[in-house]
């Protein structure tokens, strides 16, 4: 009797969330694979085309390969800056420098703002009109012609400082939390041996926060692979071949060109890349893990 009551309890508590999750996440995720094997305009009936969509997106001259390139650019170019700045800031604050709390609170600030607002803020910073903060600064320095930072040919480079500006705080907080977990005694022992601050960082801090550093890299790569908001907004909803990321290309193929199968094939590739990146870093993490 009691057991039946408990089973009913489990069913009423687990049932609704699991059903919602299955219907709105798992089922469409599985269906994506089916869609990617068809040609469909979203209205009529779909025709089965096997792997034709994948052959098309991977063929030379397709828009997909440059789009992956743009994603990788938007992952690694700002990524190097984000990781090194975040490590530097976290380590500085960890060493109890004066004003550490202020830096921590301020540097994290941009992370709470939406991607769209960040993009618009930087559109205004980069603006070629008199409003533009950056062109205004250049003018003060004697540079008269405003530079169109956000035109297609330059846009990806223009996004680099924006990504660093908006992303660094998160990783700083993450790394700082990891550093605070390292027992103080290691540093004390190292200091007794006369190890410099740089040596301590290299031989204590870095190895002992390796797990978190790898997790950070996974976040960075997965975020870079999914990149959408800023490119879409800064290109006014119509990115060109020289700025498309996988997500914006997928969006425009499906919702602007009604090529559903092709667009879904892109999303499947995106999923596989996310999976591969995560698996690779988990392996790296396992191999290098230090017990302490």
């Amino acid at each position: 009797m009691k057991n039946r009551g408990q089973n009913l309890f489990i069913a009423t508590f687990l049932g609704p969330p699991l059903l919602l999750y299955a219907v709105f996440v798992l089922m469409p995720a599985v269906n994506a694979f089916r869609y990617s094997l068809t040609r469909w305009d979203g209205l009529g009936s779909a025709s089965w085309v096997g792997l034709a969509n994948f052959r098309a997106i991977l063929a030379s001259g397709s828009e997909f390969l440059p789009a992956i390139g743009h994603n990788l650019f938007l992952t690694f170019v700002p990524g190097v800056g984000i990781l090194s700045l975040a490590l530097f800031f976290a380590y500085s604050i960890h060493q109890r420098i004066r004003g550490g709390r202020l830096y921590r609170v301020a540097f994290f600030f941009p992370n709470v703002i939406s991607g769209v607002a960040v993009a618009l803020l930087w559109v205004l910073i980069y603006s070629t009109s008199d409003v533009g903060l950056l062109n205004g600064l250049l003018k003060l320095m004697g540079h008269t012609d405003p530079i169109p930072f956000t035109e297609s040919g330059r846009l990806l480079w223009a996004i680099v400082p924006m990504s660093i500006w908006s992303g660094t705080g998160f990783f700083m907080v993450l790394f700082l939390a990891a550093m605070e977990n390292i027992p103080e005694t290691y540093y004390e022992a190292a200091k007794l041996d006369g190890a410099s601050s740089a040596v301590q960082f290299r031989s204590i801090t870095l190895p002992l926060m390796w797990d978190v550093l790898t997790t950070g890299i996974v976040f960075l790569v997965v975020g870079g692979l999914k990149f959408f908001d800023a490119v879409y907004v800064m290109e006014n909803g119509r990115p060109s071949g020289s700025t498309h990321t996988m997500s914006t290309l997928m969006y425009s193929k499906v919702f602007q060109e009604y090529n559903v199968g092709y667009g879904t094939a892109i999303s499947v590739m995106l999923f596989l890349l996310v999976l591969a990146a995560t698996a690779a870093s988990l392996r790296l993490m396992r191999r290098e893990r230090l017990e302490y």
Partner: peptide, 12 residues
Amino acid sequence: GLLIPMQLVLIP
């Protein structure tokens, strides 16, 4: 679900 990007779910 932790590994499923929203892009995969969006279209279907």
